[in-house]
Amino acid sequence: MSMTNKMEQKRMHPHKFTLWVAIGSLLMMFAGLTSAFIVKSNQVNWKPVAMPVWFTISTILMLLSSGTMQLALKGFRERVMRNYRLWMWVTLGLGAAFVASQWIGFQELWSKQVTFQGAGAGQFLYVIFGLHALHVIAGVIVLLVMAIRSFVGSVKSYNTVPVEIAATYWHFVDLLWIYLFVFFWVVGGGQ
């Protein structure tokens, strides 16, 4: 770590710092779940799960939304409210589309007899992806509130911190999805 990096850390806004600690905490929850997955995959009657193509589409949507989130942040930093609003709406649209693609993927799995019965990776998939989707939904709601707020009321002081926090959270949810996707792909045997 260079000196400048350390200096930046020192000046970090408390709310941003809180988010980073929260991310650590959320990571522990998913680490707990994925390690439970590994422990259980050594039990008898374990069935791997093949992931539907919809989850690949989810991945593309999520990656795209990270890019658009960054564009929204850029718009806000440069004080081009038109761009900020536009990219916020696109991002939260992509987020909603992500959740929808997850739902369709779940339904496809369910129709292929991957249900809560028996044992196997499928049960974990619903719980882990479901919990991740809940975090995406929370993010979509936050973005929605911020996007609506940018139309109503007057701004007393121009503060980039809330948008930066939302962006960090969004990227975290994106990276978390990549981790889970790869995890299920490699460990869950789901090509």
Binding site: S25, M29, A31, G32, L33, A36, F116, A119, Q123
Partner: peptide, 23 residues
């Protein structure tokens, strides 16, 4: 902050086992 989330994941799995028939 590092250990409570793990209990939460344990509790969620238990809720699934109790109410939705998972194993």
């Amino acid at each position: 902050v590092l250990s409570f989330p793990v209990l939460l994941s344990g509790a969620i799995l238990l809720l699934f086992d109790r109410n939705l028939g998972t194993s």
